[in-house]
Write a protein that binds this DNA or RNA. Structure first.
Lengths: 237, 237
DNA sequence: TAAGACGAAAATATAGAAAAATCCAGACCC
DNA sequence: GGGTCTGGATTTTTCTATATTTTCGTCTTA
């Protein structure tokens, strides 16, 4: 009789795309569960429970949580374990303001320094984003996963020529936090009425392609602020 | 014959001010050793060796290193262990530019929002800093530890009324990185000739007390840029 | 009702096993 | 002769199972 291997054995490395270590697999898994709000903000994370779920040891989970702490997705109190980072209107406001400032900074230098190769990459990701629908055909509850990916790529590409690794790292962190808030907010029926997201993206894109820094920064700020407003009113904080 | 204890043994727990966990003690110790350049940038950190030195288990060291990774003081490659974050002129430039931008941002809001209590705290830390000498009387090689502390407090207090926890967290991170570079640079004999650090601090302080945002930001930028220039020319990268 | 003791649960710590990478000597080919 | 490859030996990282310590809730008792 043929023996069925456990899932971890048969899943090829390329699919998980995580470095072989179990800590990293646990990290990836827990991270996804937090971002998808499977673990709700503010809830306590039971180390033993997670270890059982993920079929790894306590130490591995502990290390994974350490990694997540560096992304501010979980917080720890000594001797009292880990909890999913709580959310609050104040936090959302802070993140939004910080993000606007830093994205603007990155965008400025990116436009100034960006060469033809960057422009080409930007055109590519813009094209992809503009041809995708925000929602999947099947269920209009949540945003399409492909669209989210394309959206992230487009925003990353905008600042791709910035060159300052530290600013980019901070930008990435803030983007991720914003995403967490966005995903927490329930489906966005009110958006469609009051808002034209593709038009906002186009405004940014056009300004960037014309190398009009001020207009691009202003368009980006408008885009981010509108998103934050929607999320704030939509999510139950 | 009397046995000489290793430094880590004789330091009382109250001095380190760490939460009881051994992981955190290890973290504090390794962190200090990196900042003081006892562990040089780019060197590999042997987990077993550290565990032996600090008299804790592998797991505790591993967790401490995880924490340090979140501060970007160490980097890890899966299956290949941890190394002290390398330094480079590019990195120094990135950190400096990012720091100038973010400190300026924080200072702006801090001046706008700062109340009397903040002003009072700022006066206090300014007073302390202004009365301390940069170098210890005994050895003029390195900066005085008390002065460094007061300097950090003063700069932290400047932006203390900013209110945006995310920006402040990033500021703290960048300050720490700058400190690492500064401590790496050898003693600063050339500074005394070309530079008057207390005057630079006074310029910032005066502008802030007069609530002159633009002048304060300009003074701060000058201060940070000068420091970076000195460090870049002084340190062997 | 409040203080204290007890027990369960959870976090932290440790030592040793397993897995992976590195190192080194010797063989082989050009 | 020089350079490259191969196969273990060794070191180092990673993982697990277990032990210890701390915290939290509960139940008793004054």
């Amino acid at each position: 009789m043929k023996i069925i291997h456990s899932p971890t054995d048969v899943v090829p490395a390329v699919l998980t795309e995580s470095p072989g270590t179990k800590s990293h697999r646990a990290y990836t898994q827990i991270r996804a569960d937090i971002l998808s709000c499977h673990h709700l903000p503010g809830t306590k994370l039971n180390i033993a429970g997670l270890a059982a779920d993920l079929d790894v040891s306590l130490g591995a989970v502990r290390e994974a949580l350490s990694m997540l702490q560096s992304e501010a997705l979980v917080v720890s109190e000594p001797q009292r374990g880990y909890t999913v980072s709580p959310v609050s209107p104040k936090e959302l406001a802070d993140i939004t303001e910080a993000r606007i400032a830093i994205e603007a900074l990155c965008l400025r230098t990116s436009i100034e320094r960006g060469d033809l190769a960057w422009e080409s990459r930007l055109v590519a990701s813009w094209h992809k984003l503009s041809r995708l629908s925000q929602t999947d055909a099947g269920k209009d509850q949540h945003l399409s996963e492909t669209w989210s990916r394309a959206h992230a790529d487009f925003h990353a590409e905008l600042v791709g020529a910035c060159g300052n690794d530290w600013l980019l790292r901070m930008r990435a962190m803030l983007y991720e936090q914003s995403e967490r808030y966005r995903r927490m907010s329930v489906s966005m029926p009110q958006q469609t009425g009051t808002r034209d997201v593709p038009a906002e993206h186009k405004a940014i894109f056009d300004a960037v392609m014309e190398r009009d820094v001020e207009r691009a920064v202003a368009a980006l700020e408008t885009h981010l602020r509108k998103t934050a407003t929607i999320v704030r009113s939509s999510v139950a904080l």
